[in-house]
Each structure stands twice: as C-alpha cells, then as structure tokens.
Design a protein around this nucleic acid. Structure first.
Lengths: 210, 210
DNA sequence: TAGATTGTTAATCGATTAACAATC
DNA sequence: TAGATTGTTAATCGATTAACAATC
C-alpha cells in the first residue's frame, strides 16, 4: 500500500521529533504545531509536516498536534513502544560507559547481558550482571532472549564479534567500534552515533516495511 | 577562485578515502585507481573522482593515482598534516575510553590535558596527565595551547561545558555528550560519531575556506 | 599506437522548500 | 465566521550517476 519510499533522512529525524515532543510534554503543553516543533528541532515547518505525513495523519487542521497522541505515534513508528533486550559486548571503558548510560533505560532498552573475550574479565560482576564469555554467545543467546547487540570492543576484534552476532539471529547491531560495517545479509547494521542519543538505532529496530 | 560549493557529503567521505589509501599503502601498492578506491569504500568510481576533483587534480589520466601523493593531499585537505592539541573534558568511563583510543594518536591528535568538574577527581592522575578543575579551563587554556576540546560529560553539564569552550577561543569541539549541539558563533560545532573513526572531526578542523 | 583512466560536463535522481486547498 | 494550521502537490535545489573528451 504505502508505496512511497520514505527518505533515510526522514527516518533519522523522527527521533529528534520524539525527543522534543517529550520535552514539550514535560513542560505541560497539550497541543503543539509543526512550526513550534520545527523551531525546536532546527527545521522549517514544511519539513516537519512532510516527514510526519509519510506515516499517517497525526494532526488536526487548524489546531496542530496533540502532544500525547504524537508522542505515542512516534514511539510506535520507532519501535519504542515495547522493551528491547540488549547485550553489550566488550566491558572496557566504552562498554562501561554505554552500560551506565541512562538514555537506554529511559527508552526501554534493557541491558540483560554483558560479554567479554578477555578470560580474566569473564565471571566478574558488572553492576547487576556477571560478565560472560563471548565464546559462549550463541549458546547463551538460545536461552536468554537478546534483541540487540551493542559492540564496544577494540577495532581488532570487531569484525569477529559482528560476524558472530549476525549469525545468531539477532535483530540489530549497534556498532561503536571504530570501523565501518557494511550491511550483512538480512540484518541491518548501522554505525551509531553516541552523541545523538542513539538516533538511528531506532531505524533498524523499526519494522522491515519501513 | 574555487567558487563551486563542496557538498557536505563529499567532505565526510574524504576520511574514508584516506583510511583506505593508508591501507593500500600498507599493502605495498604504489598506484591505485578510482575504481579500486570506490570498490573498497563502497562507492562507484564516478563519485570518487568527483569528490577528489573538488580539491584539485591528484591523478594521472590513463594511470590512476599515486598512493603516496594522494595520501599526502588528503591529509593536507583534512588538516591532518600537522599535530593538534586536544583537551578531554570529563574523565568518566566515556572520557577514559576516548583517552585510551589509539586512533587519536595515530592521526596526530595529542591529548595534552584532562578536565573534570568533580572536585574529588581533580588532582588525580590519569595516565600521564593530572586531572584539572574544569572551572580553571579558561585560565589554563591561556598558557597551555589547546586546539580541540572533546566533551565527554553527562547530558546535564554538557551545555555549560560547551558554552565555556566556545568562549575560550578553541578551534573545534567534539561533542560526545548525548545531546545535539547547534552551531555557535563562528565556531563550527558538530556531533561526532565514535564509530566512524572520527570522520567529520576533520571537517571542522579544515581551513575555513572549505 | 591501443587500452586505460582521469577530470568534467550533462542527465538523472532524490530531498527540501514553497504554495495552497482542505478544514478545524 | 475568520484565523490558523494541516496534508499534499508542485517547484526548486542539491547530490549522484552517466557519459565522454582529454591524455597518459
């Protein structure tokens, strides 16, 4: 049905809209407009309306957008209306920073497992989790359900880790290792920007239809 | 003279070209072509030639590109032909991960100072550096020359830190805090993606002419 | 020379901006 | 009703791809 291709750029802007709409909600405002939204995101109102229109009609002519309603719809589009189970691979400084990052929990990403290849780290406690041996990843992933793998290992081990993840039936990979990853098989793989509150993450979590 | 506007997308691709040309050099190859380059970066050869042509004529018709020469030119364009002095602000897990990241040194980014706002951390040793109080940043920046500030603080303190940095005559800011920063004054400020080996960094280090 | 590959101009494609009828 | 703001179509802008003369 929806035969119009949605621009990649539109997808990446959706999470900005969500972030702002949540702020607007916190401020106690019930209705907003494409003009206000655009101002706060740094785009013009045409762009905002166009982007949203790709996914449906969320506004009321002459009135604007109901904050609650738009928030809900954006979350649904972005696949953030249900929790996701996340495994972090690599428990060095970067992995630790990501595990401590509050934005994940706030968005419904539950870190359910931590892995490392360094045998000296395996078995240690990391917050509430026990670090597991990455060599056992596939086996563990069969029992512990994991939707997303976050790669926070050095460049050297990144390819090996990513290959293992893609063959483990995981839904998405967030690669924070310093290398470019190309799309693999059916799995969408995207390099992620820590600094933009994980915009884009949501992209490859979204339904394959998008 | 160079009146043609260079696309933003071209700029971000330059560091990919450099990364690949360096690999090709390591492999011992002396000459390469837009076809090979494109293949390894994941673009077609037209794009590669077009991108490079914005900055000059680096190839020889019928022959291709001399690896050494192209490397040198790319480095010059990206501003990587001279060392940059970097200060890291925030010495938590993320800051530590960045300080340990070998890619910086490899590219000529020297971390010359580390700052924190947490008084309990100030004075402690971090590698070869003593953590300094961020409140003294401006004063310290007057004597210790700093080109680039890397922001690795939590969201709460990010704006304050960035404001301070922009008013300190720094050349560039790399923001790894989870928020979007808009351009400020003359300073170019860009959100940076850890996972792509700091593509883009080089962008706002490059001469203002670009 | 013939084959290869560049640099550059032209054609296509996609995304943004402008404009406006629909409608609250 | 009059003013406001949406959803959508048309116009513009910019970036990618195709094509090819120049030339090693």
């Amino acid at each position: 049905m929806n035969k119009v291709k949605i621009p990649e750029t539109t997808i990446t802007r959706l999470s900005s809209y969500l972030r702002i709409i949540e702020k607007i909600k916190e401020e106690g405002t019930r209705y907003t407009s494409s003009l206000i939204l655009g101002e706060r995101v740094g785009l013009n109102s045409d762009q905002v309306r166009k982007d949203l229109a790709y996914f449906g009609q969320f506004g009321i002519r002459g009135q604007g957008y109901a904050v609650d309603n738009l928030e809900e719809n954006l979350k649904k589009i972005l696949g953030l209306n249900r929790p996701w189970r996340v495994a972090v691979i690599g428990t060095g400084n970067l992995g630790s920073a990501l595990m401590a990052y509050k934005g994940f929990a706030k968005r419904g990403f539950r870190i359910v497992a931590a892995f490392d290849i360094d045998k000296r780290k395996v078995g240690r406690q990391k917050g509430t989790l026990t670090i597991k041996d990455f060599r056992d990843f596939k086996k563990i992933a069969e029992t512990v359900k994991i939707d997303i793998g976050i790669v926070a290992v050095p460049e050297e081990s990144a390819i090996e880790v990513i290959n293992c993840l893609t063959s483990s039936g995981i839904k998405a990979i967030l690669n924070f290792a310093p290398l470019k990853v190309s799309m693999v098989k059916g799995t969408k793989c995207r390099n992620v920007d820590l600094s933009t509150e994980l915009e884009g993450l949501t992209y490859f979590l979204s339904s394959p239809g998008i």
